[in-house]
Design a protein around this nucleic acid. Structure first.
Lengths: 118, 118
DNA sequence: TCCATTTTTCAATAATAGTCGAAATATAGA
DNA sequence: TCTATATTTCGACTATTATTGAAAAATGGA
């Protein structure tokens, strides 16, 4: 995943309405939700919702599929996993993330003396 | 981690300059980098850099520590992990989602899988 | 104190993002 | 075809974010 796409994906989720939309879709699972149902669940008016769904879609975070008069939206787990993979590598700096993922991150004063990992 | 904080953290990273800054700091490890060094590495002019560092700091993604005439910035791995935890739960919808951390992040023994009190 | 160095704040501007009612589009069924 | 339903687009507006030179603030050392 290129950083350009990462920024786009992050920006897609970095907004109250869109994060709520995405969470609804994740919770709904592979069956997804119709746009109107998302509007009901989140309280976002249809026109605003459409705007945000387009953002999410453009970022690859959701897919859509017409179904009769409805449009079913689903969370794109592949993109989400790619995003998490990128962030994890960034978080871990390419090293095994033991110093990161253990609760040993709190000492603030005495870690400037540690040497940089390879 | 509350969704408000998640949105703030995501927004902090959802920008070219800030993602570059954060990656530099992750790569630098716990020793961190002086502001001027970040400016050199990223090519971001000092005033812009200061703006973005403040954003990152406000989001809890970086910490700073004066050191003489320098200000040393470090990535806040705790926040980053909390963010990844939230996103992983969102991505997985409460189900196991092993493919996220497989490549480089294999824990050697026991990783503290901290749960938030929500 | 005075100076060089480092970083932040200020200020003005440019660019992008968010909101939502109303109109337009598309579809299914009668 | 006509109508009700579902969704998107349009348009006008507001709000937020990003950029950066110049000035200011803070520090260590001569």
């Amino acid at each position: 995943m290129e950083t350009k796409d990462v920024v786009t994906a992050l920006a897609a989720l970095a907004q109250d309405s869109r994060l709520a939309i995405f969470r609804s879709l994740v919770q709904a699972g592979p069956a997804g939700l119709a746009a109107g149902r998302i509007s009901e669940l989140t309280g976002i008016p249809p026109s605003s919702l459409s705007f945000h769904l387009k953002e999410l879609s453009h970022a690859g975070m959701v897919d859509s599929q017409p179904s009769g008069r409805f449009v079913i939206y689903t969370a794109n787990f592949t993109t989400m996993n790619a995003l998490l993979g990128f962030l994890t590598e960034n978080c871990c700096g390419g090293n095994p993330c033991s110093p990161v993922c253990t609760p040993a991150c709190e000492p603030e004063q005495s870690r400037a003396t540690e040497k940089e990992p390879t």
